[in-house]
């Protein structure tokens, strides 16, 4: 949460930028497709546990979106045997992937409400990490070994690129001509650059950090992060824009 709060300053900057663009767009007075509305939205999906955005038209078929995606969470002591093993594992996960995004939506197929979306995201943390170890002591001969004595694996994946370009399409409306509420679906990908892997173990499986370099090399092609986000919008200037 604290890390997410660190995004507040850039978020304010983003809103100011959006507002500046808003003034410019209104001066153009181009509203042929009932698109000239401001909208606030919330969204969720692969890049956001929850996200909020503010949308402003900047052209007859074009909107500017400033978004904050909150994607920081921890999973602690998730116990599973993966329906496969006799032993249960205890899994910890940490995801630090919150971002500020500035996107431009351009309506390309009005009949399908299909938009082309491009933009950029600022990811301050951009990493995913976790560990897995046995949940219960394990008896070997006459000793019940604690999981930490046997060792556990920990590792993660980190993207060092903080500004990630976004490409995608969106289906549905950002704003509706006659209703306040609107629904749309974003399908796209962030370009995050080559991931950096870190991995190691403790106790019996210690000294395995050499695999990090190999995995980093093997995964160097995995540079695109998929985005599937569902957005619910609310027009905030409905009456002024019939």
């Amino acid at each position: 949460m604290i890390r997410a709060l660190s995004l507040i300053k850039p978020m304010i900057l983003l809103l100011c930028l959006t507002a500046a663009v808003k003034g410019y767009a209104q001066s153009e007075a181009l509203r042929p497709l009932d698109t000239g509305r401001h909208s606030l939205g919330i969204f969720m999906g692969s890049t956001a546990l929850i996200g909020i955005d503010y949308i402003r038209p900047i052209g007859p078929k074009t909107w500017l979106r400033s978004c904050f995606s909150y994607m920081d969470f921890n999973v602690r002591d998730w116990e599973t045997n993966l329906n496969r093993y006799e032993q249960y594992a205890s899994i910890n996960l940490s995801v630090r992937n919150s971002s500020l995004n500035l996107l431009v939506d351009h309506l390309i197929v009005p009949k399908l409400n299909l938009r082309l979306v491009t933009g950029i995201g600022l990811f301050l943390m951009n990493d995913f990490s976790g560990s897995i170890k046995l949940r219960d002591p394990l008896k070997i001969n006459d000793v019940y070994f604690e999981p930490d004595e046997l060792g556990y694996v920990y590792g993660g994946l980190r993207y060092n690129l903080k500004f990630n370009p976004y490409f995608g399409v969106a289906l549905g409306r950002l704003v509706h001509p006659s209703r306040r509420l609107s629904v749309s679906l974003d399908i796209g990908t962030f370009y995050k650059g080559a991931p950096e892997i870190f991995i190691n173990g403790t106790a019996l499986i210690r000294n395995n950090e050499h695999n990090a370099e190999i995995l980093t090399n093997n995964m160097s092609g995995y540079r695109w992060f998929p985005v599937f986000n569902l957005r619910f919008g609310y027009s905030i200037d409905h009456k002024d824009n019939p």
Binding site: F145, G168, T189, I205, P226
Partner: peptide, 26 residues
Amino acid sequence: MIWGAFSCAKPEDLLEGTFINVQTDL
């Protein structure tokens, strides 16, 4: 875009070249 996000290599290829050191000092 979907191909870019999800393809590149088979999962088993990701592990190519890796090896696990196993210690014996239980």
